[in-house]
Design a protein around this nucleic acid. Structure first.
Lengths: 247, 247
DNA sequence: CGCGAGCTTGATGCCGATCAATGCATGTGG
DNA sequence: CCACATGCATTGATCGGCATCAAGCTCGCG
């Protein structure tokens, strides 16, 4: 009932890392031909997740990692008393589920923000294969380490930035990742609500909305609901970094 | 000059994971005898770091991980405009340096808060050995995953808790980790300043100080500078979790 | 067309930042 | 041994940014 519309059965058709156009962003970075062929045996199924459905939930048994193939996700943790916090947004080529390794259970929820597809990576198989291929082992470690570094950046944001700085940093991070995937660096459509942005940034949705409006007044952005056009990228950068540096 | 009192040369004497009393908390968890013996060849040197000195700094070339053997560390990241943020406090048995794997350079500073010793773990060797021993490989992955989960917890704290809740959560986390190392769960000496606590919790030092005073008034703590005695642990727990749960 | 989810905008209040002064412990040199 | 400096902690007064409460507004959809 709770996962009524989630496709729990893997999709029938096969996919191959070796022919995937995300392979330069995803787990296979740096692998050579024979390694790629072996990886194909590991990443053999996809799973579709409809908008609003969960890929996994906190407490679920951990078995697989998931590479986003198409679509967009959020991950969120929640405390016992019901508070919850969006910990990240994931787009194509990014990995979901690393939190589960530590206790064999997931510690956060992963929710699709639009109809999405993920590649299912059996963790036990990944362990085996990464003992065989040093490149794969190293790449996997790098991905985990990168997640740690990213988290530290978010802590910096949450611990020491003001509302405008947080939103500017968020937008710049999003556009940078979109650009790496071949999208425009100046125009984007937000897949998440103001409330989800607020949760990620440690702000209330009203503050997010007001800050968008302020950016528009200041000529930094053009905001039409979830359609954002960046008019002055340098201006955003200065908000994040140059807050007091120009003195 | 900047690291005048740091011992850059590894200490001469050898150490062995197999005979270390931290082995149930550290990297060797779950390894059997022969595996432990091999690990001893990998973790062969210690390094001493005096109070106030850095073990590594942001930008340093990454080569090794460090397991805290004795002492206490903080890690902090800083942004271009000079803002900085304490991202964690590490005590005996905990690993430092995981951030460096992602780019081959460290992305944070690790500073000793008291005279400390660390075991030096050559990362390249760890990769080799963890291809051979599945337990070691798995344990290492668990440690990285645990760091990610911990970071998500800090994000929840920074994003959605109020000052009293943050400090209560911080104290409970500290005592829990100290207890796992055989120390009292009700009495502790803080190794860090109010300012460092504040940075970690996203608060100013005055707020940290005031909140300590408030806890004392409320009979939750006995505070004498850095000496803390917890008088009502349940009370602290209720602050963190039960904020609104009793309605 | 009307409903509802999500977004915007305004008015008000509070929590924690900021500014400032004092207190307390440790250490150093006269 | 005391005078003084220094680093850290405490406490008070005031201020400001963001939360909160409360209306409307927009847009997609049955």
């Amino acid at each position: 009932m709770t996962e009524a519309s989630t496709s729990l059965k893997p999709d029938a058709f096969k996919v191959a890392c070796s022919s995937c156009n995300l392979r330069e962003l995803c787990l296979p970075v740096g692998l050579d031909r024979p390694e790629l062929d072996r990886l194909d045996t590991l990443v053999s199924t996809r799973r579709s997740v409809s908008r609003g459905d969960t890929l996994f939930r906190s407490g679920d048994h951990f078995e697989s990692l998931y590479a986003v193939r198409t679509g967009f996700f959020k991950t969120c943790v929640s405390s016992e008393d019901g508070r919850d916090q969006v910990t990240g947004f994931q787009m194509a080529g990014e990995l979901l589920g690393l939190d589960g390794i530590s206790t064999d259970r997931h510690s956060c929820d992963a929710v699709a923000l639009e109809d999405s597809q993920v590649c299912v990576i059996q963790y036990s198989q990944l362990e085996i294969l990464s003992r065989e291929f040093t490149h794969l082992q190293h790449q996997f470690h790098k991905i985990m380490s990168r997640e740690i570094v990213r988290d530290h950046g978010v802590m910096l944001l949450l611990g020491s930035m003001r509302a405008e700085e947080r939103l500017a940093a968020f937008l710049l991070n999003l556009t940078q990742r979109l650009q790496a995937r071949g999208f425009s660096s100046s125009s984007l459509i937000l897949r998440m609500t103001r409330e989800e942005i607020g949760s990620y940034l440690g702000l209330k949705l009203e503050t997010v909305s007001r800050t968008f409006s302020k950016f528009q007044e200041d000529g930094l952005l053009d905001v039409k609901q979830r359609q954002i056009r960046i008019l002055n990228q340098d201006g955003l950068h200065q908000l994040v970094n140059g807050a007091g540096a120009t003195c």
